[in-house]
Write a protein that binds this DNA or RNA. Structure first.
Lengths: 232, 232
DNA sequence: GTCTATATTGTGATAGAC
DNA sequence: GTCTATCACAATATAGAC
């Protein structure tokens, strides 16, 4: 039973760098070996195949990124301080590893058939989650009509729209109380600016990487306030 | 000067499908030819090389997706109806072509050096844009201290934080008035749920694609309301 | 554990017949 | 325009010497 040798670490490190940057198909074993400064056949000695090596990298990226999000999803969404701490953790993680979000999104998108299994491994039970979501902050949301087939879950269209609840400011204004929409909004606001890093930096910050980074740090305080605002 | 033959259309269509799904390196010319039901060498007859073929697909995806966003960015952000219409257009586009957002994000991320050129082709002038952004809706935002190097643009850290402006609801609450943060928020809320389609569908909608789609349609009315809420 | 050598297959691209 | 044949090369993986 082999444990972490120095060589194995170099391999993982190089594989990580290249796979995240150019994807699985876009990276050859030779390139990884060259980057790690070793012979190509050693890759097959430590990891049986390219598939296995990629899988190791993928799992590592997932486990560095998802647990924080998972705990956010698992929580009873008794927000306040918890929300701020979670957002800060997630954003800090992406600041350290900017390539991870887009890598994971791309991988999940290319292999949707693997998503259910990955969710299970993450320790999220969708049924429980949706149950919890229903019980949270839905003072005026209609979650009625369970017309979903099969699972008996509420998969139907909770509109989240409350026609009688206009704030009076804008005609047709709706109050966002569907917890799933709220979760989507939080994830969107946290992750997207990192997934779109290059174009955001170029368009909004004129290519100034430092200014972009500063803006991302700001979001650690901006986002919790924003979320609380549209949750209430 | 050759025009659209039937074969050429089949090629583009197959190349689109496969490139968007598996990426450039993950797709072979043979697979494209098979999918199009033609001989492999015909690909090289119609498009000189794999690079050229991919470029055609990439450009087409870009031009189907970006113009709407570009006009949003170009606009003087005199919101109201304009915002709603834009969001609806963008979301409808992604409903029709679900693979496009993640494909473009991945491509921009892998080739950041191409981003400036692409922005230019899109017709967005970053300098003008930032100038406009400064002039918009910043009743209480400090955009001072132009410490940016080179361009003379404001690339520094506008905090967007207004210490004296607490709403009184939450300690440390900040008002989001930095226009760039607002733009980021809008793009995030629009695009991310599509870029993360597979996992969002699985986690929040228990794998029910129809429920997911319905939620996306809802966002066409949800998001404008939300944005107006945190703009004011 | 690490290397050389090699087997096998796949890839993008072109020449040339029809 | 479309095909067959072929080239030059890159890819993963494995066998076997040290």
């Amino acid at each position: 039973m082999k444990l972490n040798t120095e060589t194995e670490q170099k391999i993982i490190s190089s594989a990580e760098k290249l796979f995240l940057q150019r994807g699985k198909a876009g990276t050859s074993m030779q390139e990884i070996a060259d980057d790690a400064g070793i012979n190509r056949t050693l890759l097959n000695y430590y990891f049986r195949s390219k598939d296995k090596l990629f899988e190791a990298v993928y799992r590592k990226a997932l486990s560095s990124f998802i647990p924080d999000l998972a705990s956010l999803l698992r929580s009873d969404i008794s927000f306040s301080d918890y929300l701020s701490a979670m957002i800060e953790t997630v954003i800090d993680g992406m600041i350290d590893n900017p390539q991870v979000p887009i890598f994971i999104l791309q991988e999940l998108s290319s292999n949707p058939e693997r998503v259910p299994q990955i969710i299970r491994e993450m320790g999220i039970d969708p049924l429980k989650l949706i149950g919890k979501l229903k019980a949270v902050k839905t003072t005026d949301t209609d979650v009625g009509e369970d017309t979903a087939p099969g699972t008996g879950e509420d998969t139907a269209t909770d509109t989240g729209e409350v026609p009688g609840m206009d704030t009076g400011e804008v005609p047709g204004m709706v109050k966002v109380t569907d917890p799933r929409q709220v979760i989507m909004n939080i994830l969107s606001l946290c992750i997207f600016p990192f997934a779109a890093r290059s174009i955001v930096t170029e368009i909004l910050y004129n290519g100034d990487t430092d200014a972009y980074l500063e803006a991302m740090k700001q979001r650690k305080v901006l986002l919790p306030a924003l979320v609380k605002q549209f949750m209430t």
